[in-house]
């Protein structure tokens, strides 16, 4: 059932896909975190147009399949005059899609920081953005770590969506190895293990971080 010669014979292919998946995941992780935070802040500013924009973004993006988001960036953008290759389009799609979920998690975190914190910060003469950055967000992050790490694990798994736009990720090479070897079960079990190498430390790390932050407050 499990044929280790597949792993050895196709190791360079696995590695290329693995490294591309890491790269796409890292870019999307940082990107979706920044984008998600901005969107979350939009939604709670109390400034109507920003609030509306943030809500529309979140509701629109998170209620369509990630596949469509990625296909849009790959096939749709060229008709608007911008062409991204499979890796770029896939990573961008992954970033945009994940950011909607991150925004919701962060928004919930921000709302659970007591109101008095913002009042104290604002009444000391700091701007809204300064207050957010130095007072509210650092506290919100603590509450947001468990849902956020869930989203990041999802992100790594969702990165396999790059395959459909030939994004040269791990799953893309898995398909290609399968097409060459016909050893379907072995090929995908090894592929799953490469994903585990990324996701298991991630969930372990989030547990440790969670505990450490809980201690400091």
């Amino acid at each position: 059932m499990l044929d280790f010669s597949i792993l050895i014979e196709y190791f360079p292919d696995y590695m290329e896909g693995f490294l591309n998946t890491i790269q796409a995941s890292l870019i999307a992780l940082v990107g979706s975190f920044i984008l998600g935070t901005i969107i979350a802040v939009f939604r709670i500013t109390g400034i109507k147009p920003l609030q509306w924009l943030g809500t529309a973004y979140v509701e629109f993006i998170r209620n369509i399949p990630i596949l469509i988001v990625v296909l849009f960036f790959y096939l749709g953008l060229p008709s608007l005059g911008a062409r991204l290759d499979g890796f770029q389009a896939g990573t961008l799609g992954l970033t945009v899609y994940t950011s909607a979920f991150i925004a919701e998690a962060i928004r919930a975190g921000i709302l659970s920081v007591p109101k008095g914190q913002m009042e104290a910060a604002r009444s000391s003469g700091m701007s809204y953005i300064q207050s957010m950055l130095h007072v509210i967000l650092p506290q919100a992050i603590k509450l947001v770590i468990p849902p956020l790490s869930n989203q990041f694990i999802n992100l790594i798994k969702n990165s396999s969506v790059l395959t459909i736009v030939a994004g040269l990720d791990l799953m893309y090479f898995a398909d290609s190895i399968n097409g060459d070897s016909y050893a379907t079960v072995s090929t995908y079990i090894f592929t799953g293990m490469f994903y585990l190498i990324l996701t298991l430390p991630m969930s372990y790390g989030s547990h440790v971080l969670e505990r450490r932050l809980a201690k400091s407050s």
């Binding site: 790959y74 096939l75 060229p78 395959t163 459909i164 736009v165 030939a166 290609s176």
Partner: peptide, 18 residues
């Protein structure tokens, strides 16, 4: 060579200039 799940996806990519 860029590989796609099926011919239709590959054809769409060709149409999109990929």
């Amino acid at each position: 060579v860029l590989e796609f799940d099926n011919y239709q996806d590959a054809f769409n990519a060709l149409k999109a200039g990929q």
